[in-house]
């Protein structure tokens, strides 16, 4: 029934796509409302909520005090009792302040109560480095939350997915954590008008190839695609998978790809150790794709350091296109 209005597609930024998703959800469902710090007249730290307060009023675009733990808990309580809150964190780093409510309450309440309740809360986390905001405003903590059964954790990489996954998250009966890379907010891309959803738990093959599978998340999808383009000039044909969902992970898409390419590289911005790359690598090592591997698995992740302030140091902390090109070339040509 939405197909008619879905046909029109135009360019929107990632931030605009998120804002549009929230507006559509609030129009469709009076239970949906937004909570967060300075999301009202200020428009949000990254202008994602923008002017929504003018359209929907301060009751539905609620400024909260600077109380991440309490605010997250209020969202959980509202969700358990029948509303559909979307809680915006100003920076994903501040999830650390709200871990209790996210990990002990939101994630576990349904299970602890034997299925008597659902917790349909959405939490949005502006994440990642590259803005010169240094160590406490630049982290990528999605693997932390991905470790918690009961949560769903997604990382949209494009404006199209940012809108479709957010709408899916709002309609999902369980708590969904969305990590939005801050450097993507201004990126433009085609976004269909009207309501549509992108399924949670499904990866997307962004580029098909036969020599190497790169599994990337969030902004690293774009860096991997750029690296793949560069290497195609050298006759190296790379498949790029956008994981999109950290939990529940789409294992089959990755397994099928590795069976085809026989090589795997994981590229992600979060600290390399004990991260998403480790999970994807182990998953492949445990799967039927293991026998198809022609080379060791390679992980490119963030350095084992807090995010530094100096722009050159900051850049060196997370994988960049040149590094991906080199690592992929070495892997495919057997130089490693």
């Amino acid at each position: 029934m939405d197909a008619i209005i879905e046909t029109a597609t135009r360019e929107l930024s990632y931030a605009q796509a998120i804002q549009e998703a929230m507006a559509i959800a609030m129009e469709r469902d009076e239970r949906v409302f937004l909570m967060g710090e300075d999301i009202g007249v200020y428009g949000g730290a990254f202008q994602v909520t923008g002017d929504l307060v003018e359209r929907f009023g301060p009751e539905r675009v609620m400024d909260t005090p600077i109380s991440e733990l309490g605010g997250a808990g209020v969202a959980v309580g509202a969700a358990v009792t029948g509303l559909r809150p979307i809680f915006e964190f100003q920076f994903s780093d501040f999830a650390t302040l709200a871990m209790e409510q996210i990990v002990n309450q939101a994630a576990k309440m349904r299970y602890m109560l034997g299925g008597a309740v659902s917790v349909p809360v959405v939490m949005r986390f502006p994440a990642g480095s590259g803005t010169g905001a240094a160590a406490q405003h630049s982290q990528s903590l999605e693997a932390w939350l991905g470790h918690v059964p009961g949560l769903k954790v997604i990382q949209p990489a494009t404006p199209h997915d940012a809108k479709g996954l957010l709408l899916a998250a709002i309609e999902d009966p369980d708590p969904v954590m969305i990590f939005e890379h801050k450097l993507l907010y201004k990126m433009k891309g085609p976004v269909p008008e009207g309501h549509y959803t992108v399924p949670i738990g499904k990866a997307d093959v962004r580029r098909e190839g036969r020599d190497l599978t790169i599994v990337a998340t969030s902004i690293m999808v774009h860096k991997a695609l750029e690296a793949a383009e560069t290497l195609s000039g050298e006759g190296i044909d790379i498949e790029v998978i956008d994981l999109r969902t950290v939990r529940p992970m789409d294992r089959q898409t990755v397994i099928d790809s590795v069976r085809k390419t026989s090589r795997l590289m994981c590229v992600y911005e979060a600290v390399k150790t004990l991260g998403i790359g480790a999970e994807v690598s182990a998953m492949i090592a445990e799967s039927e794709a293991f026998d198809y591997l022609d080379a060791p698995i390679v992980r490119l992740g963030g350095a084992e350091t807090p995010i530094p302030y100096n722009p050159e140091l900051e850049k060196a902390t997370v994988p960049q296109v040149d590094g991906i090109v080199q690592a992929a070339r070495d892997l495919v040509t057997g130089a490693r």
Partner: peptide, 9 residues
């Protein structure tokens, strides 16, 4: 905080 959220509802 959960009680406050329920009261918000």
């Amino acid at each position: 905080p959960i009680a406050v959220g329920a009261a918000l509802t």
